[in-house]
């Protein structure tokens, strides 16, 4: 039996990653605009936030069994996925409109009040989009690794880390190709206080992330149920441990902390890339950890005896 029958695939993990990254980028851009003024984040970063959410939505659609019926996911207001789908839609629209204010040749770019409203929408929808995947997973009572508010905090933290890293990277990229700015087509964010401070802030958040993850695994390992402890064990010395420890903790958290403490923008951008990579690895591993369900009596033995990989043979034989 293939595992596609009873679990989400990597595209859902990628959707969670892009939603978190894009949602946090919009929220950061909105907060910076509302409280610190114009051009605190780069135009590229503002557009990228909305585009990343759209990529996440696209992957979510591709993950569906019937992608052409995707419009139906907007139908049940009681479902958290419906809530997420609507918020992603609103965030994409608000994000693109907000980002367009950075293109000075557009006639509406001078309407400050409208920009402020859009910044507020970016904060609201961006925060919801960055948070809802964590809430969605936390509510799964029979998935011991996900269940509980902890996963929501970890997702939220990772979203903001990747969001900040996204802005660092966008600021660097647009700084390196500044012809549009020199010609006056787009607003310059060269003197942005936010962009200057983001590397150190990201390093601090990465440190929090390290501590929170250590605590999370420790709590789950000594957790309330045997299944919870077993699920956490996979991250310590099981099949997920190498990717978690080398990919996420070392490459995606510790190395970026060091790189972001330097003062060179090019090194910051490498650190930002690694922090983003870490966020992607973490989402993938967490979604995979959803395989662990609280077993019913005798179920584990039963499932372990089902043939794996024989589906094609059986279909041909039929």
């Amino acid at each position: 039996m293939s595992r596609k029958h009873d679990e989400w695939g990597w595209m859902l993990a990628a959707d969670f990653f892009f939603a978190g990254l894009g949602g946090a980028m919009l929220a950061i851009a909105g907060i910076a605009d509302l409280f610190l003024g114009d051009a605190q984040t780069s135009v590229l970063g503002n557009f990228a936030g909305a585009i990343f959410i759209a990529i996440g939505a696209g992957l979510l659609i591709l993950e569906l069994g019937r992608p052409f019926q995707a419009f139906r996911v907007f139908m049940n207001p009681k479902s958290i996925l419906t809530f997420g789908a609507w918020n992603m839609t609103f965030a994409i629209i608000a994000g693109l409109l907000f980002a367009s204010f950075g293109i000075t040749i557009l006639p509406w770019s001078g309407f400050i009040l409208v920009r402020k409203f859009l910044a507020a929408f970016c904060v609201i929808f961006g925060l919801v989009v960055a948070t809802y995947p964590g809430v969605l997973l936390a509510r799964h009572k029979a998935r011991p690794f996900w269940n509980g508010p902890g996963i929501m905090v970890l997702f939220f933290l990772s979203s903001f880390i990747t969001g900040m890293a996204g802005h660092i990277l966008s600021g660097y990229v647009i700084g390196e190709s500044s012809w549009f700015i020199a010609e006056g087509y787009i607003v310059s964010s060269f003197s942005s206080l936010v962009l200057q401070d983001l590397p150190h802030l990201t390093a601090i958040m990465l440190l929090f992330q390290l501590i929170f993850w250590a605590g999370y695994i420790w709590i789950k390992r000594s957790g309330g149920t045997e299944r919870e402890a077993e699920a956490a064990q996979r991250w310590v010395n099981g099949d997920l441990s190498a990717s978690f420890q080398l990919g996420f903790i070392l490459l995606g958290t510790i190395v970026p902390i060091v790189l972001l403490l330097f003062t060179t923008p090019a090194i910051h951008s490498v650190g930002a890339c690694l922090a983003i990579l870490g966020g992607a690895i973490m989402r993938y591993l967490v979604v995979r950890a959803g395989e662990d369900r609280t077993w019913l009596p005798g179920e584990q033995k039963y499932r372990s005896r089902l043939p794996v990989g024989d589906e094609e043979f059986l279909k041909v034989w039929k």
Binding site: G65, R66, A142
Partner: peptide, 27 residues
């Protein structure tokens, strides 16, 4: 007719009672 095969219910069910039918693209 309404199912899009998102597997949200598969993951939410504590009893492993729902199965994704790969041929039909639904649960």
């Amino acid at each position: 007719k309404k199912c899009v095969g998102c597997k949200a219910c598969v993951m939410a069910c504590p009893y492993g009672a729902r199965i994704f039918n790969q041929e039909k693209g639904i649960v």
